[in-house]
Simulated assay, not measured.
Amino acid sequence: MIQQLALQSAGAGVGVFLGLLIGLTLRKRKGRTEGLLGNSVILTASAAGGLALVVMMAINYFANA
């Protein structure tokens, strides 16, 4: 069941990760690094993508319950 929820929700997690990776990379090149976790674009994008995955899993779980 968890695997099925993860597969159904993976698109949102990957989309948020890629979008933030591009956006935060451009932002960091301009010198604006406030708001980054550990001053790292990859870490911040990964955390946001993981959070989006968990939120979408919860939404899919309650929508199918």
Rank of each mutant, 00 (worst) to 15 (best):
I2S: 15
I2G: 15
I2T: 14
Q3I: 13
Q3Y: 14
L5G: 02
A6F: 10
A6M: 13
L7V: 08
L7A: 09
Q8L: 11
Q8P: 02
Q8V: 03
A10W: 15
A10L: 13
A10V: 14
A10S: 10
G11E: 08
G11S: 09
A12E: 00
G13P: 08
V14S: 06
V14D: 03
V14M: 10
G15L: 07
G15M: 06
V16S: 09
V16N: 06
V16M: 07
F17P: 04
F17E: 04
F17G: 00
F17W: 02
L18F: 07
G19Y: 02
G19W: 05
L20P: 02
L20V: 02
I22N: 11
I22D: 08
I22E: 10
G23D: 13
G23A: 14
L24R: 02
L26P: 03
L26K: 09
L26E: 09
R27N: 07
K28M: 11
K28C: 11
R29L: 14
G31K: 09
G31S: 12
R32G: 02
R32S: 11
T33Q: 10
T33D: 12
E34N: 07
G35P: 08
G35Y: 04
G35S: 11
G35E: 13
L36W: 12
L37N: 12
L37D: 00
L37Q: 03
N39V: 04
N39W: 11
S40F: 00
S40C: 00
V41A: 03
V41M: 04
I42H: 08
I42T: 15
I42R: 13
L43Y: 09
L43H: 08
L43E: 06
L43D: 02
L43V: 07
T44C: 01
T44G: 01
A45I: 01
A45G: 05
S46W: 00
S46T: 00
A47K: 06
A47N: 04
A48T: 01
A48F: 15
G49H: 00
G49C: 01
G49D: 10
G50H: 06
G50M: 03
G50Q: 09
G50D: 09
L51W: 04
L53R: 01
L53K: 05
L53T: 03
V54C: 05
V54E: 00
V54Y: 05
V54N: 00
V54S: 02
V55M: 10
V55A: 14
M56K: 15
M56V: 12
M57I: 08
A58E: 08
A58V: 15
A58K: 13
A58L: 15
A58H: 08
I59A: 09
N60M: 10
N60W: 08
N60R: 05
Y61F: 14
F62A: 02
F62D: 02
F62Y: 03
A63F: 07
A63I: 13
A63P: 06
A63Y: 07
A63K: 04
A63R: 10
A63Q: 12
N64V: 12
A65P: 12
A65M: 13
